[in-house]
Design a protein around this nucleic acid. Structure first.
Length: 393
DNA sequence: ATGTAC
Protein backbone atom coordinates (compact mmCIF):
# COMPACT_ATOMS: atom_id res chain seq x y z
CA UNK A 1 0.00 0.00 0.00
CA UNK A 2 1.26 3.43 -0.86
CA UNK A 3 0.54 6.09 1.73
CA UNK A 4 0.39 9.48 0.12
CA UNK A 5 1.82 11.50 2.96
CA UNK A 6 3.78 13.80 0.69
CA UNK A 7 2.69 16.02 -2.17
CA UNK A 8 3.98 14.62 -5.46
CA UNK A 9 3.17 17.61 -7.67
CA UNK A 10 6.14 19.74 -8.66
CA UNK A 11 6.03 23.29 -7.43
CA UNK A 12 7.39 26.25 -9.37
CA UNK A 13 9.91 28.39 -7.50
CA UNK A 14 9.59 32.16 -7.55
CA UNK A 15 12.51 34.55 -7.74
CA UNK A 16 12.05 37.96 -6.18
CA UNK A 17 14.35 40.16 -8.27
CA UNK A 18 13.95 42.76 -10.99
CA UNK A 19 14.72 41.52 -14.54
CA UNK A 20 17.87 43.66 -14.59
CA UNK A 21 19.27 41.99 -11.47
CA UNK A 22 21.85 39.41 -12.53
CA UNK A 23 21.40 35.98 -10.99
CA UNK A 24 23.71 33.11 -11.83
CA UNK A 25 22.14 30.31 -13.87
CA UNK A 26 23.55 27.71 -11.49
CA UNK A 27 21.65 29.31 -8.61
CA UNK A 28 18.36 29.05 -10.53
CA UNK A 29 19.11 25.39 -11.36
CA UNK A 30 19.77 24.67 -7.68
CA UNK A 31 16.56 26.45 -6.73
CA UNK A 32 14.55 24.36 -9.21
CA UNK A 33 16.27 21.15 -8.17
CA UNK A 34 15.61 21.78 -4.48
CA UNK A 35 11.98 22.65 -5.24
CA UNK A 36 11.58 19.09 -6.59
CA UNK A 37 12.37 17.43 -3.26
CA UNK A 38 9.49 15.34 -1.89
CA UNK A 39 7.02 17.33 0.15
CA UNK A 40 8.11 20.77 -1.08
CA UNK A 41 5.20 23.21 -1.08
CA UNK A 42 6.85 26.51 -2.01
CA UNK A 43 10.30 27.80 -2.90
CA UNK A 44 11.43 31.40 -3.20
CA UNK A 45 14.72 32.92 -4.32
CA UNK A 46 15.53 36.32 -2.84
CA UNK A 47 17.49 39.05 -4.67
CA UNK A 48 20.78 37.85 -3.14
CA UNK A 49 20.30 34.34 -4.56
CA UNK A 50 23.60 32.66 -5.51
CA UNK A 51 24.89 29.09 -5.85
CA UNK A 52 25.84 27.10 -2.79
CA UNK A 53 27.11 23.57 -2.22
CA UNK A 54 24.22 21.66 -3.79
CA UNK A 55 21.55 24.03 -2.50
CA UNK A 56 21.17 27.71 -3.33
CA UNK A 57 21.93 30.49 -0.83
CA UNK A 58 19.50 33.38 -0.50
CA UNK A 59 16.46 31.14 -0.66
CA UNK A 60 13.58 29.91 1.47
CA UNK A 61 11.66 26.65 1.24
CA UNK A 62 8.33 25.58 2.73
CA UNK A 63 8.01 21.84 3.09
CA UNK A 64 6.11 18.99 4.69
CA UNK A 65 9.42 17.40 5.63
CA UNK A 66 12.57 18.57 7.40
CA UNK A 67 15.71 18.76 5.28
CA UNK A 68 18.82 19.10 7.46
CA UNK A 69 21.17 19.06 4.46
CA UNK A 70 19.29 22.05 3.05
CA UNK A 71 19.84 24.02 6.24
CA UNK A 72 23.52 23.21 5.83
CA UNK A 73 26.41 23.15 8.26
CA UNK A 74 26.23 26.63 9.69
CA UNK A 75 23.01 26.13 11.65
CA UNK A 76 22.00 29.33 13.42
CA UNK A 77 24.31 31.60 11.44
CA UNK A 78 22.97 35.12 11.69
CA UNK A 79 23.37 38.79 12.56
CA UNK A 80 23.17 40.73 15.78
CA UNK A 81 23.37 44.50 16.26
CA UNK A 82 24.49 46.43 19.34
CA UNK A 83 24.44 50.09 20.11
CA UNK A 84 27.79 50.97 21.63
CA UNK A 85 28.74 53.78 23.99
CA UNK A 86 31.22 55.00 21.37
CA UNK A 87 30.38 58.18 19.52
CA UNK A 88 31.15 58.46 15.83
CA UNK A 89 32.70 61.89 16.32
CA UNK A 90 35.35 60.81 18.82
CA UNK A 91 36.13 57.35 17.42
CA UNK A 92 39.66 56.75 16.12
CA UNK A 93 39.62 53.63 13.87
CA UNK A 94 43.43 53.28 13.78
CA UNK A 95 43.68 53.38 17.59
CA UNK A 96 40.81 50.91 17.93
CA UNK A 97 42.36 48.58 15.35
CA UNK A 98 45.54 48.36 17.42
CA UNK A 99 43.56 47.23 20.46
CA UNK A 100 41.74 44.41 18.68
CA UNK A 101 43.95 41.38 19.25
CA UNK A 102 43.58 37.71 20.01
CA UNK A 103 39.85 37.31 19.31
CA UNK A 104 40.64 34.10 17.38
CA UNK A 105 41.84 32.13 20.38
CA UNK A 106 39.71 30.56 23.12
CA UNK A 107 38.06 33.00 25.50
CA UNK A 108 39.71 33.01 28.93
CA UNK A 109 36.56 34.02 30.81
CA UNK A 110 34.03 31.98 32.79
CA UNK A 111 32.65 29.58 30.17
CA UNK A 112 30.38 27.79 32.65
CA UNK A 113 28.66 31.03 33.57
CA UNK A 114 28.28 31.98 29.90
CA UNK A 115 26.77 28.58 29.06
CA UNK A 116 24.41 28.88 32.01
CA UNK A 117 23.28 32.33 30.84
CA UNK A 118 22.46 30.94 27.40
CA UNK A 119 21.07 27.59 28.56
CA UNK A 120 23.79 25.62 26.76
CA UNK A 121 25.05 22.13 27.46
CA UNK A 122 28.83 21.77 27.15
CA UNK A 123 29.95 20.66 23.67
CA UNK A 124 33.37 19.63 22.29
CA UNK A 125 33.38 22.91 20.33
CA UNK A 126 33.11 25.38 23.20
CA UNK A 127 36.70 26.59 22.86
CA UNK A 128 35.39 28.31 19.70
CA UNK A 129 32.71 30.24 21.64
CA UNK A 130 33.40 33.91 21.08
CA UNK A 131 35.32 33.44 17.82
CA UNK A 132 34.22 34.88 14.48
CA UNK A 133 35.38 32.09 12.13
CA UNK A 134 36.04 32.45 8.40
CA UNK A 135 34.21 33.02 5.17
CA UNK A 136 31.85 35.97 5.17
CA UNK A 137 31.78 36.25 8.96
CA UNK A 138 32.83 39.51 10.58
CA UNK A 139 32.43 41.98 13.41
CA UNK A 140 31.99 45.54 12.19
CA UNK A 141 31.68 48.97 13.78
CA UNK A 142 29.32 51.14 11.80
CA UNK A 143 28.12 54.71 11.85
CA UNK A 144 24.52 55.57 11.06
CA UNK A 145 24.94 57.30 7.71
CA UNK A 146 21.42 58.38 6.81
CA UNK A 147 18.15 58.22 8.73
CA UNK A 148 15.14 57.52 6.53
CA UNK A 149 12.58 56.78 9.25
CA UNK A 150 13.29 58.70 12.44
CA UNK A 151 10.33 57.26 14.33
CA UNK A 152 11.30 53.66 13.61
CA UNK A 153 14.92 54.35 14.57
CA UNK A 154 13.86 55.92 17.85
CA UNK A 155 11.55 52.97 18.55
CA UNK A 156 14.59 50.70 18.27
CA UNK A 157 16.42 52.94 20.74
CA UNK A 158 19.19 53.64 18.27
CA UNK A 159 20.80 57.05 18.65
CA UNK A 160 22.21 58.43 15.39
CA UNK A 161 25.46 59.69 16.92
CA UNK A 162 26.45 56.36 18.49
CA UNK A 163 28.41 53.65 16.69
CA UNK A 164 26.72 50.32 16.07
CA UNK A 165 28.42 46.94 16.23
CA UNK A 166 27.19 44.33 13.76
CA UNK A 167 28.30 40.72 14.28
CA UNK A 168 27.85 38.02 11.64
CA UNK A 169 28.81 34.53 12.78
CA UNK A 170 27.36 31.09 13.36
CA UNK A 171 27.69 27.81 15.20
CA UNK A 172 31.30 27.06 14.08
CA UNK A 173 32.27 23.40 14.51
CA UNK A 174 29.09 22.49 16.39
CA UNK A 175 26.69 23.00 13.48
CA UNK A 176 29.11 21.26 11.16
CA UNK A 177 29.25 18.21 13.45
CA UNK A 178 25.44 18.08 13.67
CA UNK A 179 25.09 18.10 9.89
CA UNK A 180 27.89 15.57 9.40
CA UNK A 181 26.34 13.08 11.85
CA UNK A 182 22.96 13.62 10.16
CA UNK A 183 24.28 13.06 6.63
CA UNK A 184 26.32 10.02 7.71
CA UNK A 185 23.18 8.32 9.01
CA UNK A 186 20.40 9.55 6.75
CA UNK A 187 22.07 11.12 3.71
CA UNK A 188 20.23 14.12 2.31
CA UNK A 189 16.80 12.58 2.86
CA UNK A 190 13.96 14.63 4.27
CA UNK A 191 12.84 13.65 7.77
CA UNK A 192 9.21 12.96 8.56
CA UNK A 193 8.08 15.37 11.28
CA UNK A 194 7.32 13.64 14.60
CA UNK A 195 9.74 10.81 13.74
CA UNK A 196 12.45 10.11 16.36
CA UNK A 197 15.15 11.19 13.90
CA UNK A 198 13.37 14.49 13.25
CA UNK A 199 12.98 15.14 16.95
CA UNK A 200 16.64 14.33 17.49
CA UNK A 201 17.73 16.68 14.70
CA UNK A 202 15.44 19.48 15.85
CA UNK A 203 16.82 19.27 19.39
CA UNK A 204 20.40 19.52 18.10
CA UNK A 205 19.41 22.25 15.63
CA UNK A 206 17.83 24.34 18.39
CA UNK A 207 20.91 23.87 20.55
CA UNK A 208 23.05 25.14 17.62
CA UNK A 209 20.75 28.19 17.28
CA UNK A 210 21.33 29.08 20.92
CA UNK A 211 25.06 28.34 20.65
CA UNK A 212 25.35 30.62 17.60
CA UNK A 213 23.46 33.39 19.35
CA UNK A 214 25.66 33.03 22.44
CA UNK A 215 28.68 33.04 20.15
CA UNK A 216 27.70 36.37 18.58
CA UNK A 217 27.11 37.85 22.01
CA UNK A 218 30.51 36.67 23.25
CA UNK A 219 32.26 37.98 20.12
CA UNK A 220 30.66 41.36 20.84
CA UNK A 221 31.59 41.21 24.53
CA UNK A 222 35.25 40.39 23.76
CA UNK A 223 35.51 43.12 21.12
CA UNK A 224 33.88 45.74 23.35
CA UNK A 225 36.12 44.70 26.23
CA UNK A 226 39.21 45.17 24.03
CA UNK A 227 37.99 48.67 23.16
CA UNK A 228 37.15 49.45 26.78
CA UNK A 229 33.51 50.22 26.07
CA UNK A 230 30.03 48.78 26.52
CA UNK A 231 26.97 48.19 24.38
CA UNK A 232 23.38 46.99 24.41
CA UNK A 233 21.98 44.48 21.97
CA UNK A 234 19.21 45.86 19.78
CA UNK A 235 18.55 43.22 17.10
CA UNK A 236 19.26 39.52 16.58
CA UNK A 237 18.23 37.19 13.76
CA UNK A 238 19.40 33.90 12.31
CA UNK A 239 19.33 33.26 8.55
CA UNK A 240 20.22 29.54 8.39
CA UNK A 241 17.72 27.21 9.99
CA UNK A 242 14.37 25.46 9.90
CA UNK A 243 11.27 26.08 12.00
CA UNK A 244 7.70 24.81 12.15
CA UNK A 245 5.14 27.33 10.94
CA UNK A 246 1.37 27.55 10.92
CA UNK A 247 0.73 28.07 7.20
CA UNK A 248 -2.98 28.72 6.66
CA UNK A 249 -3.84 26.27 9.40
CA UNK A 250 -1.37 23.63 8.30
CA UNK A 251 1.84 22.75 10.12
CA UNK A 252 4.75 23.02 7.68
CA UNK A 253 8.51 23.53 7.92
CA UNK A 254 10.13 26.76 6.82
CA UNK A 255 13.77 26.35 5.74
CA UNK A 256 15.83 29.52 5.54
CA UNK A 257 19.07 29.08 3.59
CA UNK A 258 20.72 32.47 3.75
CA UNK A 259 17.37 34.17 4.20
CA UNK A 260 16.48 36.59 6.97
CA UNK A 261 13.16 36.32 8.83
CA UNK A 262 10.56 38.94 7.91
CA UNK A 263 8.23 38.06 10.78
CA UNK A 264 10.29 39.28 13.76
CA UNK A 265 10.50 43.03 13.29
CA UNK A 266 13.32 45.21 11.94
CA UNK A 267 16.70 43.78 10.94
CA UNK A 268 19.96 44.69 9.26
CA UNK A 269 20.66 43.54 5.70
CA UNK A 270 24.41 44.05 5.35
CA UNK A 271 26.23 45.01 2.19
CA UNK A 272 29.88 44.11 1.67
CA UNK A 273 32.47 45.74 3.92
CA UNK A 274 32.91 48.38 1.20
CA UNK A 275 29.27 49.40 0.99
CA UNK A 276 26.41 50.46 3.21
CA UNK A 277 24.25 48.11 5.27
CA UNK A 278 20.50 48.70 5.50
CA UNK A 279 18.41 48.71 8.63
CA UNK A 280 14.95 47.79 7.33
CA UNK A 281 11.44 47.10 8.57
CA UNK A 282 9.67 44.17 6.88
CA UNK A 283 6.36 45.06 5.18
CA UNK A 284 3.59 43.01 3.60
CA UNK A 285 1.94 39.78 4.73
CA UNK A 286 4.92 37.47 4.06
CA UNK A 287 2.89 35.45 1.59
CA UNK A 288 4.98 35.93 -1.58
CA UNK A 289 8.34 35.91 0.20
CA UNK A 290 7.62 33.06 2.65
CA UNK A 291 8.09 35.49 5.56
CA UNK A 292 11.68 36.14 4.53
CA UNK A 293 14.09 38.76 3.19
CA UNK A 294 17.55 38.78 1.62
CA UNK A 295 20.32 38.18 4.16
CA UNK A 296 22.96 40.29 2.44
CA UNK A 297 24.27 41.54 -0.90
CA UNK A 298 24.90 38.02 -2.22
CA UNK A 299 28.13 36.71 -3.66
CA UNK A 300 29.01 37.67 -7.24
CA UNK A 301 32.24 35.64 -7.39
CA UNK A 302 32.81 32.19 -5.96
CA UNK A 303 35.28 31.71 -3.15
CA UNK A 304 38.80 31.47 -4.54
CA UNK A 305 37.87 33.40 -7.66
CA UNK A 306 38.46 36.88 -6.28
CA UNK A 307 42.22 36.63 -5.77
CA UNK A 308 42.86 35.73 -9.41
CA UNK A 309 40.62 38.58 -10.57
CA UNK A 310 41.84 41.28 -8.18
CA UNK A 311 45.48 40.61 -7.29
CA UNK A 312 46.69 42.17 -10.56
CA UNK A 313 45.19 45.56 -9.78
CA UNK A 314 44.94 45.58 -5.98
CA UNK A 315 47.69 44.71 -3.52
CA UNK A 316 46.77 43.40 -0.06
CA UNK A 317 47.56 46.79 1.50
CA UNK A 318 45.15 48.47 -0.94
CA UNK A 319 42.36 46.31 0.50
CA UNK A 320 43.01 47.49 4.07
CA UNK A 321 40.88 50.60 3.52
CA UNK A 322 37.62 50.51 1.55
CA UNK A 323 36.15 53.03 -0.88
CA UNK A 324 33.90 54.28 1.94
CA UNK A 325 36.95 54.84 4.15
CA UNK A 326 36.44 51.85 6.44
CA UNK A 327 39.45 50.09 7.99
CA UNK A 328 39.76 46.35 7.41
CA UNK A 329 41.56 43.91 9.69
CA UNK A 330 42.11 40.69 7.74
CA UNK A 331 45.53 39.09 8.03
CA UNK A 332 44.61 36.16 5.79
CA UNK A 333 45.40 36.94 2.16
CA UNK A 334 42.97 34.48 0.59
CA UNK A 335 40.14 35.73 2.80
CA UNK A 336 41.14 39.36 2.18
CA UNK A 337 40.50 38.89 -1.56
CA UNK A 338 37.56 36.47 -1.22
CA UNK A 339 35.64 38.96 0.87
CA UNK A 340 36.67 42.08 -1.05
CA UNK A 341 33.72 44.37 -1.87
CA UNK A 342 34.08 43.42 -5.56
CA UNK A 343 33.22 39.79 -4.70
CA UNK A 344 29.69 40.91 -3.83
CA UNK A 345 26.72 42.27 -5.71
CA UNK A 346 25.58 45.81 -5.02
CA UNK A 347 23.43 46.02 -1.89
CA UNK A 348 21.45 48.98 -3.35
CA UNK A 349 20.02 46.72 -6.06
CA UNK A 350 19.11 44.02 -3.53
CA UNK A 351 17.31 46.50 -1.27
CA UNK A 352 15.71 48.15 -4.31
CA UNK A 353 14.30 44.81 -5.44
CA UNK A 354 12.91 44.07 -1.97
CA UNK A 355 11.33 47.52 -1.71
CA UNK A 356 9.87 47.23 -5.23
CA UNK A 357 8.33 43.88 -4.25
CA UNK A 358 6.73 45.56 -1.22
CA UNK A 359 8.72 43.47 1.25
CA UNK A 360 10.49 46.10 3.37
CA UNK A 361 11.15 49.75 3.88
CA UNK A 362 14.50 51.26 4.90
CA UNK A 363 14.87 52.84 8.33
CA UNK A 364 18.53 53.87 8.10
CA UNK A 365 21.77 53.13 6.31
CA UNK A 366 24.91 52.08 8.20
CA UNK A 367 28.44 52.80 6.99
CA UNK A 368 31.37 50.53 7.94
CA UNK A 369 34.08 52.21 10.02
CA UNK A 370 36.13 49.21 11.12
CA UNK A 371 35.69 45.63 9.89
CA UNK A 372 37.34 42.86 11.89
CA UNK A 373 37.86 39.53 10.11
CA UNK A 374 40.98 37.83 11.41
CA UNK A 375 44.35 38.53 12.99
CA UNK A 376 47.20 36.07 12.77
CA UNK A 377 48.48 34.65 16.03
CA UNK A 378 51.11 36.87 17.66
CA UNK A 379 53.99 34.50 16.86
CA UNK A 380 53.06 34.41 13.16
CA UNK A 381 53.68 38.08 12.51
CA UNK A 382 56.65 40.33 13.05
CA UNK A 383 56.50 41.47 16.64
CA UNK A 384 57.26 44.91 18.00
CA UNK A 385 60.76 43.88 19.11
CA UNK A 386 61.75 42.68 15.66
CA UNK A 387 60.39 45.81 14.00
CA UNK A 388 62.33 47.98 16.42
CA UNK A 389 65.43 45.89 15.69
CA UNK A 390 65.02 46.48 11.96
CA UNK A 391 64.59 50.22 12.40
CA UNK A 392 67.89 50.46 14.33
CA UNK A 393 69.92 48.98 11.50
C1' DA B 1 30.53 27.36 6.26
C1' DT B 2 34.09 23.83 8.88
C1' DG B 3 39.82 23.26 15.26
C1' DT B 4 37.60 21.14 6.77
C1' DA B 5 39.00 16.98 2.83
C1' DC B 6 42.92 15.32 -0.06
Amino acid sequence: MITATTTESIITPRVIASPSSWIEGEAIRQLEQTARLPGMRAAVGLPDLHPGKGYPIGAVFLSERIYPALVGNDIGCGMALWQTELTARRFKPERAAERLQGLEGPWDGDLDAWRADWNLEPTPFDSALGTIGGGNHFAELQVIEKVLDETALAALELEPERLCLLVHSGSRGLGESILRAQVNQWGHAGLAPDSPEAEDYCARHDQALRWAEANRALIAARLLDALGTEAEQRLAVWHNGVEPVDWHGERLWLHRKGAAPADRGPLVIPGSRGSLSYLVAPTGDGETSLRSLAHGAGRKWKRGEARARLSGRQRPEDLAVTALGGQVICEDKELLYDEAPESYKGIERVIGDLVAAGLCHPIATLCPVLTYKVRKAEHQRPGRARQTERRRR
